[in-house]
Amino acid sequence: MPGKTQPQAEMLKGTLDMMVLRTLVSGDAHGHTIAKVIEHTSENLLEVEQGSLYPALHRLEDRKWVSSYWGASENNRKAKFYRLTAEGRKQLARETTRWRQMTRAIGLVMGEEGGAQ
């Protein structure tokens, strides 16, 4: 089992939805896969809590950014799969742009401050 470093306990607000959408770009997935993908891709820095994952998924579904269907998982178990909708793809694009701008802005601010110290 991989050694667990101190995971980022609190995820930045609003970023979970974006990451879930991003995960679904590479294909339909069920909750477990989504959580695993996020954790793995973030090199286990992020831990997705079920308490926020499922409400997030349902929220996204409610806003018609993802659709869902029941299917069989890779282990042949019944699981609920989520699929990115066209609307969701547009939303992801919007959020990504926003996020890039934000991180750049924050980076600029932080870089300057770091330099001053």
Partner: peptide
């Protein structure tokens, strides 16, 4: 209905995790 669905979903998650 959503609640029932969620329960099934969580169960699925649990069994996937156990299998993992």
């Amino acid at each position: 209905r959503k609640d029932v669905e969620l329960q099934a979903e969580l169960d699925a998650f649990l069994s996937e995790e156990i299998a993992d």
